[in-house]
Design a protein around this nucleic acid. Structure first.
Length: 267
DNA sequence: GTCCATGTTCTTTA
DNA sequence: CTAAAGAACATGGA
């Protein structure tokens, strides 16, 4: 579900309520979603104050009192939502429940690609720069070093952190760049257009509270609306909104990749 | 039954 | 050695 706009929207709907609250009770219903394995999150979380909640890459970072932090990653199917009525039985695949002075929050994740991570995100070398504040020089440098197709390079969180399959495809369309174009063969002009496209797409997606294709919801259960504005993602076989050409779907590294062959020519 | 899925990490290959 | 490609993870919906 979650790429930068979706994760940010969860944080935006979670933080105002949860900031400053205290965790009264922690219920861990399965412990194999916790990393590192064996971390006693119940003991570590109960009684703690949540000072802030923020996003880093696709992570929802909880700042706790005592200068400690952990994060929740939503993986593909994770949800982090307030329970309107805490007396209602938790949904299937509810793995963690935080009962706080500001309400009850539940982490649900059927596929369990997400999880709870007791780790610091501040100096994590596996996370590249944030796209919204990324500068052209940095991106040029990062892309110049790799001979992979631009699509896979942009999915690499060490190069740029927060994009996923949807927003890479959408950004490449706006930039008019073919997904198979080699990263280090893009001109400076191409990269400049690409960075502008990435920021533009992400900001627009944020305004529309992310994309709900299947079951993504924010912390209050609200769906995103940006999927209605997708140019290419999940639009294979449909006409391009710009030129009417048929949108193509190919598979790259096991991920479906959608693009307009006319607006995104090979070069 | 088949194929597909908004992500990450580990393993294999070149 | 490193970079890139591929497989694996687990569940559910069409």
């Amino acid at each position: 579900m979650p790429e930068l706009p979706e994760v940010q929207t969860v944080v935006n709907t979670l933080a105002p309520r949860l900031r400053g609250s205290k965790i009264r009770k922690t219920i861990l219903r399965r412990d194999d979603i916790v990393t590192p394995t064996g971390t006693d999150v119940v003991r570590r979380l109960t009684g703690r104050t949540i000072q802030d909640i923020r996003r880093r890459a696709k992570r929802i970072v909880f700042d706790l009192d005592g200068d400690e932090e952990f994060y929740i990653h939503l993986g593909m199917t994770g949800r982090l939502t307030f329970a309107d009525d805490p007396s209602v039985q938790p949904a299937k695949h509810t793995h963690l429940i935080l009962q706080t002075t500001a309400g009850e929050v539940r982490f649900v994740d059927p596929r369990r690609f997400g999880g709870v991570f007791w780790a610091n995100s501040t100096h994590d070398p596996t996370l590249g720069p944030e796209p919204l504040t990324l500068r052209l020089k940095e991106l040029q440098q990062a892309l110049g070093k790799t001979a992979r197709p631009i699509k896979s390079a942009l999915l690499d969180q060490r190069l740029i952190a927060g994009l996923g399959n949807i927003y890479v495809d959408e950004s490449l369309f706006v930039a008019g760049i073919h997904p198979l174009a080699l990263a280090n063969q893009l001109s400076n002009v191409d990269v400049a257009r690409l960075l502008k496209a990435i920021k533009k797409v992400l900001k627009k997606a944020l305004r529309h509270r992310g994309s709900t294709l299947r079951d993504y919801v924010d912390a209050q259960g609200g769906k995103g609306a940006f999927q209605k504005l997708h140019n290419v993602y999940d639009r294979a076989e449909q006409p391009c909104r710009k030129c009417d050409e048929k949108i193509i779907r190919i598979v790259m590294g096991g991920r479906s990749t959608c693009f307009c062959p006319k607006c995104q020519p090979t070069t």
